[in-house]
Amino acid sequence: MKWNVQRGLLLSCCLLLAACSSQPEAGKSGNWRGYTQTGLASYYADRYHNKKTASGELYKSNANTAAHMALPFGAMVRVTNLANGKSVVVKVNDRGNFPRGRIIDLSRAAFSSIGNTRSGLIKVKLEVM
């Protein structure tokens, strides 16, 4: 009986730790290809045009670029709008400090190619290529 309780507690702790992990397994191994994520996308305000990004590149509102919290700079990511099926490929060149649920910040050009900028946020799926 004591052994089953201890085993149950250990299993519960392991499951809890796995659920709380903020770093995806792909990132730990260094291989992001095929990694997917679902959440909300927003887009950069125009005031950031020609400002330096975290990678050192200048943000261009007409380029297909994005900010992500963990993906490496230079990663190519297919972003698909889950409401209409439209997708765009972007290059990660910036970091972000996003509110809960938001996973990527797209350039204006990338966002407008898959959704209406008046909506502000869209639900998307990311796939690292």
Rank of each mutant, 00 (worst) to 15 (best):
A63N: 09
S22N: 07
N62S: 08
G8L: 06
S21A: 13
I104D: 02
H68D: 04
A66N: 03
L17S: 13
R102H: 13
A19G: 15
S21C: 13
A54E: 02
S29H: 13
M1P: 05
Q23E: 10
V90P: 03
P24A: 10
S107Y: 00
R100K: 15
V89K: 12
E127H: 04
E57M: 09
V89H: 11
L82S: 03
E127W: 06
A109F: 00
D105S: 01
L126G: 00
I122Q: 00
L106A: 01
T65A: 03
G30Y: 07
I104G: 00
G27W: 07
A67T: 03
Y48M: 12
P24Q: 06
F111Q: 01
A54Q: 07
P99K: 14
L121T: 08
L16W: 13
G34K: 09
V92S: 04
M76I: 12
D94C: 02
V88S: 04
S113A: 15
A75L: 08
N81A: 11
V77D: 03
V89F: 10
K28S: 12
S107A: 00
L10V: 10
R118D: 14
V77W: 04
G56S: 09
G101A: 12
V88Y: 10
R118N: 13
R95A: 05
L10C: 05
G27Y: 07
G115I: 01
E57R: 12
C14Q: 10
S55W: 07
T38P: 01
R95L: 12
R78Y: 08
I122Y: 01
T117V: 15
T117A: 14
S22H: 10
R78T: 13
K52Y: 04
W3M: 10
L17M: 15
S55G: 10
N50Y: 12
S55I: 10
K86L: 04
L126T: 06
N4D: 05
S119D: 14
S119F: 00
G120F: 05
L106R: 02
G56E: 05
M69I: 04
I122S: 01
H49A: 09
I103R: 03
K86N: 14
G74I: 07
V128K: 02
C13Y: 12
G39N: 09
A26R: 05
F98K: 06
G115D: 14
T117E: 14
T65G: 02
F98L: 15
S22K: 13
L10D: 12
H49Q: 11
P72F: 08
L17R: 08
S12K: 13
V124G: 02
I104S: 02
L10A: 14
L126E: 09
N31W: 08
V5H: 03
V90I: 11
F73C: 08
M69Y: 08
A41M: 10
N97M: 13
K2N: 11
Q37N: 15
P72Q: 10
A83R: 09
A109D: 01
P72T: 08
N84P: 11
Y35N: 05
W3I: 11
R102N: 11
S87F: 12
Q6H: 04
G115F: 01
